[in-house]
Amino acid sequence: MSRNRYILVNTLISYILGFSLFCIFAQEESWPFSHFPMYAKVYGTEFSRLRFYGITEDSEVRLDNSKYWHGLSTTNIDRVLPKIESDPERFIAALEHLKKAYFLAREAGAHSGPDIKGIRFYRCYWNLSLKDTRKKHDCHKLEFRYEYMFAEGG
């Protein structure tokens, strides 16, 4: 191994090990390095997720599946919206994007959902108990979060 290559390989080894160790002990996330914190915090008795509904003429239809959102997963939406809600302009642009994504996904054949007039979001709370699960209980509390009605002809 030449001297230059020896230095290059040692730099690679030191970088991967050094930065990985830094992320582990500083509990830092710097993709693709990570401290892999999935499921590390003990779950409480309650669990919540954002739930999406499309507003039709006379009812609501559940849209909590990534197939409706053309390139975004429901997890992405769940995480992005609370992070940007303090910026009204950006928040409206994001909701407008979700409208576009819904119809783009339908056009692409990813789903055959109805024509919707708007989107409504609720935070859904579950009790993490076996009793409720066995009875196939839905969430025990549905808390209204956001609603976005599409502009006419938009």
């Binding site: 390139g71 975004l72 992405n76 940007i84 950006r90 642009a93 407008e96």
Partner: peptide
């Protein structure tokens, strides 16, 4: 490809 249609309002870039 579909990520190219996502509005910049939803873009929260990672450090890299």
């Amino acid at each position: 490809e579909s990520m190219g249609t996502i509005d910049p309002s939803m873009y929260i870039p990672i450090g890299l």
